[in-house]
């Protein structure tokens, strides 16, 4: 149901029955290692290309989520997934393996919340009974596409971010047994914002205004106060982008406690892991939300959270042609049903 200019509320409260997160070797050494369902100790994951490994991550995340939800592939009406590789092949190839009717999404690193918003909308409006949504990224496959060869010895600036090897998937249904379950309650779809940052090694700063824009729109549309949420989490703004976004929000008069304003890119790795500004990638917000944050909510630590996944909509070609980086952010609120 539309509320305000660009937000949906879900009065039927789609239930997130289960979720799963899969990660790579670098994530296994990270801060959230315990929240992953499967961790691979090798970037190749037994495949003969990084792109195939990327596909495997996604397949495993979706299969695990379906399994944990005591469902079968045949029960799932639709799959909504996306990634960062050209023509989103890992997602489409995973959809080939799984045989679930499929929507391929591209919202760069905001894909996770684009998928969750659409999945919730489908279920809320009786467009589906069961939907699986997922997003993934693989460090080596994405670096290969957007940057230099993985073994090339270039010096990354302190504003650069590390692409997460990971996938996250969530299974949503329209069940009536909602008590104590995680439900999605609203979503805000962002517009493309470009404030002129053109350095692909400074994505956090490029994406921060998009995150702020969507968060402001969310509170305006829903007539809510930021204190409503226990936590507002951005996707992958990291060390540079996160404080910028907070400053932009405070300038607009939103009173957000910096303790309650977190970022998935800053949560996923340890201090001593050399990732410059933090983590990024479509799998970053997906794995952190569907793994760690959902576990925390199930354990009762948080009741209501707003996840704002941010995406930089550039291509290797567009930045070589000196174009600035257009960015987008989508927000979904998740609550524990009383």
């Amino acid at each position: 149901m539309l509320k305000g200019k660009q937000s949906w509320v879900f009065p039927n409260r789609p239930v997130i029955v289960s979720s799963a997160a899969v990660g790579g070797p670098f994530e296994a050494r990270g801060r959230l290692a315990n929240d992953f369902d499967i961790l691979h100790d090798d970037l190749w994951m037994g495949q003969d290309s990084y792109e195939k490994a990327h596909k495997l991550l996604l397949e495993e995340a979706i299969e695990t989520a379906i399994q944990k939800g005591n469902a079968t592939k045949e029960d799932v009406n639709f799959m909504l997934a996306g990634d960062l590789v050209n023509q989103i092949t890992p997602s489409s190839f995973a959809a080939r393996t799984l045989g679930i009717p499929y929507f391929g999404l591209f919202g760069a690193c905001s894909t996770s919340m684009e998928g969750l918003a659409l999945a919730s909308f489908l279920i809320n409006n009786q467009g589906a009974k069961t939907v699986v949504t997922a997003a993934s990224s693989h460090n080596a496959a994405i670096e290969k596409q957007f940057r230099y060869p993985t073994e090339y010895g270039s010096q990354k600036p302190p504003t650069a971010q590390w692409t997460v090897t990971g996938a996250g998937a969530a299974l949503l249904t329209d069940t009536d047994e909602k008590a104590g379950k995680l439900v999605t309650t609203s979503a805000t779809i962002g517009k493309v914002v470009d404030l002129g940052i053109s350095d692909p090694f400074n994505m956090g700063a490029a994406m921060a205004p998009a995150a702020a824009d969507t968060i402001i729109a969310h509170f305006q549309d829903l007539q809510l106060d930021p204190a409503y949420y226990d936590l507002i989490i951005t996707g992958d703004l990291a060390k540079i982008g996160s404080p910028i976004a907070l400053e932009l929000l405070q300038k607009e008069g939103l009173q957000i406690d910096s303790e309650k304003f977190k970022d998935c890119g800053l949560m996923v790795y340890q201090e001593d892991q050399k990732v410059q500004a933090g983590g990024s990638g479509a799998g970053c917000s997906a794995a952190v939300l569907y793994g760690h944050l959902f576990n925390e909510m199930r354990n009762g630590k948080y009741q209501r959270i707003l996840l704002v996944a941010t995406g930089a909509l550039l291509s290797p070609l567009s930045f070589q042609q000196k174009e600035s980086i257009p960015c987008i952010a989508h927000a979904v609120s998740i609550e524990v049903h009383p």
Binding site: P157, S198, I244
Partner: peptide
């Protein structure tokens, strides 16, 4: 590079404050 709009220039100032320098 394109000419920056006033909004982009304003943002540049905020961004510069937070950016980690090489």
């Amino acid at each position: 590079a394109k000419q920056k709009s006033p909004e982009q220039k304003r943002y540049e100032k905020i961004e510069q404050k937070h950016e980690a320098k090489r």
